[in-house]
Amino acid sequence: MKFAILVNEGPYTHQAVDTAYQFTKAALEKGHEIFRVFFYHDGVNNGTRLMVPPQDDRNIQKRWSELGEKHKLDLVVCIAAAQRRGLLDENEAKRQGKDGNNIAPGFRISGLGQLIEAGIQADRLVTFGD
């Protein structure tokens, strides 16, 4: 089956993020396709490479990036939600006159249309959040 994943919550604050990751990983291991993982609301914070969790804890960003690299996942962060919360890629940082970017490897910033498209293209859109 072709899944699309919507992650609506922030890392560490909410277990929805962990569940989304475990679901995505399990679905891939079972041979399903993940059309896209879309990060919205505080979920965009999954994609900052500046997170530094304690060493004995999971690194949520790194985990997504590694899973993404292994399975060629399309990890998309909503641009409007990201800008509000201070998540920028190189282009956006330049465009907004900011002195740095913080997007993690394997993530890309794009519009909400990517979420709608995922809903249209996937057999199931699965939402993780409150």
């Binding site: 919205y40 609301h41 409007a80 519009g111 909400l112 249309g113 979420l115 709608i116 498209e117 249209i120």
Partner: peptide, 12 residues
């Protein structure tokens, strides 16, 4: 942010 999805989604 739900309303923002609805407005963008309308174009589809």
């Amino acid at each position: 942010e739900s309303l923002e999805v609805v407005l963008i989604g309308a174009a589809f």
